[in-house]
Lab assay of single mutants.
Amino acid sequence: MTEYKLVVVGAGGVGKSALTIQLIQNHFVDEYDPTIEDSYRKQVVIDGETCLLDILDTAGQEEYSAMRDQYMRTGEGFLCVFAINNTKSFEDIHHYREQIKRVKDSEDVPMVLVGNKCDLPSRTVDTKQAQDLARSYGIPFIETSAKTRQGVDDAFYTLVREIRKHKEKMSKDGKKKKKKSKTKCVIM
């Protein structure tokens, strides 16, 4: 069974824990209790493949930012979460993405942009803004509501699919490099 290491990042209060708990335990946590770091595991079937999701729910508070490099190193894919009623959390996505790329030393890291709290009427981040940002990053965008469960499975499952595509691409690139290195030079 394939294991996928997913990391949920975003500013404090955007609903990272609520999304994760909704996926794992099928219930909505409405009281806000700032996370330092929590880890969850769940076995699911995605596109006919049974897999184990190892999900790291991270601290959004700035005082825990020193811990970010460590979990970013171990993560295979990242859910970059903002709240649709919090423009600052949307603007912060850029910083999370840049930090992930720096730590992973790669421009090509599996990510999904997630606009959470889409059940709320007080939207300050337009869907088109988020779609445009995701398009500019070359990553999928999904709106979710941890409260109603809308888009929750889709967000995590899409990230797994992005990781699969990335692994497939990397193995193809690896095979191309191996083929090239088999060419021999004969000096007579």
Rank of each mutant, 00 (worst) to 15 (best):
V160Q: 14
E3M: 15
I142M: 03
K177W: 09
C185P: 03
Y32C: 02
K101F: 04
I163T: 04
E31C: 13
R73K: 08
A66Q: 04
S136W: 10
Q61F: 03
P110K: 05
L133G: 06
V125I: 09
A155H: 09
G15M: 01
G174W: 03
L79W: 01
F28P: 01
L79N: 02
A11T: 14
V8T: 15
V29I: 08
A134T: 07
D47H: 12
I24G: 02
D153K: 07
G60Q: 00
I24E: 01
D119T: 14
V103R: 11
G77V: 05
K101M: 14
A155V: 09
V8E: 06
G13K: 07
V114I: 10
V14H: 14
G75A: 12
L6I: 14
T124F: 08
E3K: 13
E49M: 14
M170T: 04
M67I: 03
K167H: 09
A83F: 03
D57K: 00
H166T: 10
P121Q: 07
C118A: 11
E98W: 01
K104Q: 14
I36K: 00
I139L: 15
I84P: 15
K117Q: 14
E107I: 07
L56H: 02
R102D: 06
D173M: 02
D69Y: 11
Y137G: 13
L52K: 15
S65T: 09
D132S: 05
L23E: 15
Y40H: 00
L23Q: 15
K88E: 13
V8K: 02
L79C: 14
F141Y: 14
K180D: 09
R135L: 11
T2S: 10
P121F: 09
C80P: 01
E37F: 00
M67N: 05
K182C: 03
L79E: 05
K178Y: 08
K176T: 07
L23T: 15
V9A: 06
V109E: 02
V7L: 04
K104E: 05
V45T: 14
M111K: 01
D54V: 04
A18D: 02
A18K: 04
Q43E: 14
R41Q: 05
E49H: 14
L113D: 01
E31N: 13
L52G: 12
V112F: 04
N86Y: 02
L56D: 01
V7R: 14
Q150K: 03
I21E: 13
D153F: 05
P34R: 02
G10Q: 14
Q99L: 05
I55S: 06
D30L: 14
C118Q: 05
C80Q: 07
P121W: 12
S181P: 12
K172D: 13
Q131Y: 05
T50L: 14
R73C: 10
D154W: 05
D57A: 00
